[in-house]
């Protein structure tokens, strides 16, 4: 991997923003960090201490996507107009999730149209966030190969810029950069190790995962967790790998538009059939299903890795107190 020294991330960012819409995590003044379009090049780039509220998911798998329009006996495909854009400052966990969804939505034209127009600039984490356990989930803390075009690595006094794809190399044209010192890789590895140490052993995740796959969790334990699930859809909305959607018909000026909208497998109605039959009838079954999708061995085989990337957003967003750490702790208890 080609490595450069970088005096400031803003210089790279503003270079990239010249020909693309650029999004970066920005504080909203009310306590949240959100992906926002960069309108002012003087805006500083601040390294996030906690992950932004949303991952990059919505940039590709839009929360509301028009699929087609029906008008006068014809169905007209509606593929999004994809403008060149760059996501600047994506953490390793979120990039791993993008790679996971790239594979899941490999043949989805709407996803791929947005994805193909996007340049991904990763950011190694120099410190662990509050709920994160990316080191254990093999998705961080340093950005994984093949998941980004460019990688920023904040070291103690300076920045490293790593070129992680051909496209990443191309977009640097015209930007004056000095090669990084020879030991950059060791420094980067040491920092990643330090973050992994900060995250600790995450024993409850390991035990919970084992219990989940060892089929040692009885249905009562799941129902006890299910009682705490309000079916709010928060976890599935913020989860960077959740991908379920539902159809929505929208009347519009030119006929009826078929949209797809984010759905949640925690809703009772998710599998309910017109006949009344519901394979996922109880809240416990649905909670179990959600976690099986994230940590189940079958899914791991099918998609090449765990569905969970260890970002910890579900811990923060769950009003029932059954985010990943609490659930894994409860089901992993002997």
């Amino acid at each position: 991997m080609q490595a450069y020294e970088l005096d400031s991330p803003e210089r790279l960012r503003n270079h990239l923003a010249r020909e693309r819409l650029l999004y970066q995590p920005q504080a909203d003044g009310q306590g949240a960090l959100r992906w926002q379009r960069l309108d002012d090049p003087a805006q500083p780039f601040v390294v996030p201490a906690e992950p932004p509220v949303f991952s990059a998911k919505a940039f590709f798998f839009a929360e509301r996507e028009a699929l087609f329009r029906y008008e006068n006996g014809r169905f007209i495909a509606l593929v999004p107009e994809a403008r060149p854009q760059v996501l600047f400052g994506l953490a390793a966990c979120d990039l791993t999730a993008v790679a996971y969804q790239d594979r899941f939505f490999a043949v989805d034209p709407h996803y791929q149209a947005r994805r193909a127009a996007t340049l991904l600039v990763g950011l190694d984490c120099a410190h662990s966030c509050r709920h994160g356990f990316c080191a254990m989930m093999d998705s961080g803390p340093e950005v994984r190969a093949q998941t980004a075009d460019l990688i920023l690595c904040p070291l103690a006094q300076r920045w490293l810029l790593l070129v992680a794809s051909e496209r990443g190399a191309e977009v640097l044209a015209g930007l004056a950069l000095q090669p990084a010192p020879a030991d950059w890789a060791q420094q980067r590895d040491a920092q990643a190790l330090q973050v992994a140490v900060e995250q600790g052993e995450q024993e409850e995740i390991a035990l919970g995962c084992a219990a989940l796959n060892g089929e040692t969790v009885d249905s009562q334990a799941w129902e006890a967790l299910g009682l705490r699930c309000l079916g709010c859809s928060g976890c599935t909305s913020v989860c960077p790998t959740c991908s379920c959607f539902a159809p929505l018909q929208q009347p519009s000026a030119g006929g009826v538009v078929q949209e797809r909208v984010w759905d949640s497998c925690l809703y009772q109605g998710f599998q309910q059939e017109a006949s009344g039959h519901n394979p996922g009838a109880t809240p416990g079954q649905r909670v179990q299903r959600f976690w099986y999708h994230k940590f189940g061995e079958d899914f791991r085989q099918r998609f090449g890795r765990d569905g969970c990337v260890g970002c910890g957003r579900c811990d923060a967003v769950c009003p029932g107190g059954i985010g990943v750490h609490q659930v894994m702790k409860r089901i992993g208890e002997p």
Partner: peptide
Amino acid sequence: HCGVGLCGHCYIGS
């Protein structure tokens, strides 16, 4: 809903 393995509704195990 989708028929092509994406929308997630028709799951049976994995």
